[in-house]
Design a binder for these strands. Structure first.
Lengths: 346, 346
DNA sequence: CTGAAAGCGCTAACAC
DNA sequence: GTGTTAGCGCTTTCAG
């Protein structure tokens, strides 16, 4: 004797051999109906402990893996949430994605990640691919989406959350903060510290531009219209930061303080300054953005604008989950704000 | 008149309102059978150009989005490939993921990304979640997987590719290189350069340990058994690198050269050295690993072990796609190798 | 080149 | 508590 029980003969009609065990197989072996197995898996509280155990034993023995394609089709709930971010190379969105992943996982959902690139040329095509999987919700980065994208998202009639930016008119829900305000706040902060000669190194992506705008505008209000500016292509890298700082230092005017579009750029800028034996923050002070790598006491002499990147992801997941479960939210727009962290280096 | 044509009355049986247009709707509006619409979408060469155009016009007009849950269920092909990586925070895997995504996208497949964490405690649970979506292939990081994981992967009867490491006995296919050899090669390289006092700073993940082993073993063969070692918890960060270097420098013996487990650590180590006014590479030379941020001429004074991270992703996609389309591969194991890049700084 | 019939594996809705 | 029936939206297969 090899085994007391064996899998029942299969009644496959198709020629494509799908070797896997189905819910029906489990039901048969456990001596119950398929529906009971389904319940044992999804609403165990509706099933007798005894039946439950029998079912689970069979599942264990057979190595049954539920087919969520079938389940999703039948129930119109894919247990999938899609997130579209420009890139994960510069680190700024990584924690947001991680937080999203974690929170959704807890709730029994999985994240489907899409990378749209800078600029978001592929967002539309990506969206098609994404929507064809029938996600139960979508998380977008930024607030600038093509009319086409907005239309299709609305047509999908699922919760949508935009992140990492602020607008009074989101597609649906929003978790973010104002980049223009960041720029203004940094300018004000540095002005208050007595600086008068400013530099600006940042990438050419949308949100960085908004910060740049706010920064320049606030300085202009203080009568300062002369800002040494170097713009690099997104996404930011250490190397681009070095290069940009090189360009800036090779010019005539040398700023007292440089506001960098991201901490990654700021690190590169620091590298370049150091390799030229320029004292930081003594000769030139640096302000970054994003709050990356600044959690440790051995941090480099950089100040930054700290953003709770995890919170954005967590809250985005939260609002989507709330809406999926039918709750109506008190606020469709959550401003998570930001915080200037001056390590005494500006 | 509002419109010349309108969507047909729906015959939904279910109470859950699924608002979206179906393939059947498109067929009806185009005056063809559902099957023809399906062909127009998936095998257009089998359909008359005329019919094709009519169908596409209706699709355009209605904003039809195919339902891949249904398609996947019917065809047993989800057009989904899953990848499981430990983390995307340290950057080392990011380009691999990007390359995978890109190559698969070209072929009409989408990547479903799973983050298993260090150590891969969640790999098993993740795998369940992943397999329940019926991916057409799976890409894993590393070669150490629980027997349970191996069993279920094998049972899924889909192409599996392990990456970023080397073994003669992969589960199925493999794209990677030997970390032990990396350690040995680095040791040999540094010995040849005349160094005799070595330091080692690395994370406690599996592959880093293998490099460490190779490094120490090769030094031992040269009669050097005294290696200043600091191990930090994975994943690597700049801050951990700084901290580790601090620890090392506070000890008595000061190495001539430090082999860092990752470029990220190396950067942190460099930061710490500089903040202590230790000349790099004059007083202490540094060797990193991974080839991150080393593509630009303004690179910091670090040498590294370059790995073609994109190639790993691209090749992994390639072998999976090949196997999906039924090709048998000449080699199930691809060694992509590595390259020591000495920028004259060791 | 196009269509009709029969499911893919699962769950909603309603019986019992 | 558990079973039955009838699909979800698509593709396979086979017939024309």
């Amino acid at each position: 004797m090899r085994k007391s029980k064996s899998l029942p003969k299969r009644r496959r009609a198709s020629s494509r051999a799908t070797a896997s065990v189905t819910l029906g197989d489990v039901a048969q072996l456990a001596g119950v109906s398929p529906m009971t197995v389904s319940r044992a898996l999804n609403r165990p509280e509706l099933v007798t402990p005894d039946t439950l155990e029998r079912v689970h034993r069979v599942i264990e023995r057979t190595g049954y893996v539920p087919n969520l394609l079938a389940g999703g089709l039948a129930s119109s709930r894919s247990r999938l949430v899609a997130a579209i971010v420009p890139s994960i190379t510069n680190g700024i969105f990584v924690e947001t994605v991680q937080a999203l992943t974690d929170r959704l996982w807890q709730a029994g959902y999985q994240l489907m990640l899409g990378l749209s690139g800078y600029p978001a040329t592929r967002e539309d095509a990506l969206l098609s691919a994404v929507l064809s999987r029938r996600p139960d919700g979508v998380c977008l980065t930024g607030i600038n989406h093509s009319p086409e994208t907005r239309k299709r998202l609305l047509a999908a009639r699922i919760p949508i959350v935009e992140t990492w930016d602020l607008t009074p008119t989101p597609i649906d829900m929003l978790v973010g903060f104002s980049h223009e305000k960041v720029g203004e706040a940094v300018a004000r902060h540095l002005l208050d510290k007595g600086h008068r000669r400013f530099g600006l190194i940042s990438a050419d992506d949308e949100r960085a531009s908004a910060r740049r705008r706010g920064f320049v505008a606030e300085l202009a209000r203080a009568g300062l219209t002369d800002v040494e500016t170097v713009v690099v292509p997104a996404p930011s890298t250490l190397a681009l930061g070095r290069q940009a700082m090189g360009t800036m230092l090779d010019r005539r005017a040398r700023p007292q303080v440089v506001f960098c579009g991201s901490d990654t750029l700021a690190h590169g800028v620091l590298e370049e300054a150091r390799s030229r034996h320029i004292d930081v923050p003594g000769a030139i002070a640096l302000m970054g953005f994003g709050g990356l790598e600044f959690t440790h006491h051995t941090s480099p002499p950089l100040s930054t604008v700290d953003v709770d990147r995890s919170a954005i992801g967590r809250l985005a997941a939260e609002v989507i989950l709330a809406r999926i479960s039918g709750q109506s939210l008190s606020d469709k727009v959550i401003d998570v704000g930001f915080r200037i962290v001056d390590r005494g280096t500006t």
